[in-house]
Amino acid sequence: MNFKGCGPIFFGFLMVVFIVENYAADNKQFNRQHFDNPKSNVGKRYCDAMMQRRGMTKPQCKSVNSFIHGTKKDINDVCGKGGKPYGNNLRRSNKQFSVTTCKLSGGSTRPPCKYRENKSNRYIVIACRDGKPVHYEEGQI
């Protein structure tokens, strides 16, 4: 394929837009799935309500998810001075955060989804891209 005129510039522009949109989507998804500060007041069944509210119960129930009850600034800082390298492209926070982990109870992954919760203060392990969190490492609970 031979590009002429503005073709290469337009192609480069499209690539930049694609990369920025993917990054923004990853950080936006991280915030939707893991950020909850201050902790939402949704009644006794926090996990059931939050998992449904954040879209993690359809088409099937997500098996585990953690909500971090820290400020966006503090969570973003883990990608910089507030964290240190931890394994393969991950960062571990220097301080503990209040975290609620929701685990699916029962054997079915089909709605209605029922969760049990575990609240604790713990270090968080996240993956970062361009100084922003894009993945919460559930395996490091």
Rank of each mutant, 00 (worst) to 15 (best):
C79M: 07
G5F: 05
C102Y: 08
T101G: 10
S105K: 11
V99F: 14
Y136C: 01
I19A: 03
R45H: 09
K132L: 10
F3I: 00
V17Y: 07
P112C: 09
N2V: 14
S63P: 15
K58F: 10
K114T: 09
N94I: 02
F10P: 02
Q96M: 07
Y115A: 07
L14C: 13
D48M: 03
M50C: 02
F30M: 01
S98V: 11
N76E: 10
K119L: 12
D48S: 02
V20D: 00
R53Y: 11
D130L: 15
R110G: 04
K114R: 12
K28E: 06
D77G: 09
K44Q: 04
R129W: 10
T71K: 13
C6M: 09
Q29F: 09
F67M: 04
N2T: 13
G107V: 05
T71F: 01
C6H: 09
Q33N: 09
K28D: 09
Q140C: 08
G55M: 02
K103V: 11
G139R: 11
D74R: 15
C79G: 09
G87R: 09
A49Y: 04
V99D: 09
K103S: 12
K95R: 13
K95V: 10
G83V: 03
V134D: 01
M50T: 12
N41H: 10
C6F: 14
C113S: 15
V78G: 08
R129T: 01
A25Q: 04
F97Y: 14
V42E: 04
C47Q: 07
R54V: 06
S66A: 08
R53M: 15
G82K: 15
T101L: 04
Q52M: 05
K81T: 12
Q33K: 05
H135N: 10
C6G: 02
Y136Q: 08
T109K: 15
F10M: 02
Q96T: 11
E117L: 06
K39I: 01
Y136F: 15
M56W: 13
A127L: 06
Q33D: 03
R122V: 00
M1V: 02
Q96G: 08
I19M: 06
V20M: 07
K132F: 00
I126G: 07
P38M: 00
K95P: 01
N76Y: 15
M51E: 04
E21D: 05
F11N: 05
R92E: 01
H34E: 05
S120N: 15
V16G: 12
S98K: 15
L90M: 12
G82N: 11
Y115L: 05
